[in-house]
Design a binder for these strands. Sequence first.
DNA 1: CATCGTAATGTATATATGGGTATAACGATG
DNA 2: CATCGTTATACCCATATATACATTACGATG
Lengths: 115, 115
Amino acid sequence: MQASLLRIRINHAGNTALGPGKIELLQHIAQQGSISAAAKQMRMSYRRAWELVDVMNRCFDQAVVVSTAGGSHGGGAQVTEFGQALIDAYQQILQKSAQAAADELHLITRHLKKD
Amino acid sequence: MQASLLRIRINHAGNTALGPGKIELLQHIAQQGSISAAAKQMRMSYRRAWELVDVMNRCFDQAVVVSTAGGSHGGGAQVTEFGQALIDAYQQILQKSAQAAADELHLITRHLKKD
DNA sequence: CATCGTAATGTATATATGGGTATAACGATG
DNA sequence: CATCGTTATACCCATATATACATTACGATG
């Protein structure tokens, strides 16, 4: 199976507010409770992961990820309820879109060369 | 109104087989009958426009754009019937997706900071 | 109060991307 | 058969993007 044929992004002021990469990152953060662990799991630099989180936190009217520095295990990061709602909504958009446009999608993909 | 909130791409072997940029380029080529004229209209370098066309032609099992070099006006390029079908299908996908996922989209975009 | 692992930020470097320019090939037309 | 505008391609360079590495801040815990 190929990795997600359909890619959907939501734009905001010319930039991507939400796309497959940010969603995947959020899921890993939610699972790991840490930005650095999520980054490592995705083999992405911590720097980049943090920047993606920062962009999200700044382009929405409420936090998507909250983090604490320091503490027994150095701190950590949690996906907020709102962030989880974003993840869910994004998945729904993906699923509903793929379903609603299944015919046209098939029309296109059936002509993609197999690699 | 903001420029297309929802951006959809169709992936092929890790790369983008079809996205908003390629579709817009195809439309300009269809209208102009020339890659270079389309590129100029989009203020894109001819080199890049040609590469986008090349990628499309190589990742589908039939040509999206056919071109002729030489001739009275130097030649030109035409979008094939298949290419036009791709454009139409893409537009349908955009429209149907936005419609099918309107609720979830609204849930997300209502929390985007106004810029 | 030293330790630990993470957040947060800075800086330098490598890589990818796209633009600019030049040049050759092409072929209908006058 | 010279001209013309376009396709097609190569080469170099500027810029953007992402990585790598380094450093500081943080604060619960032993």
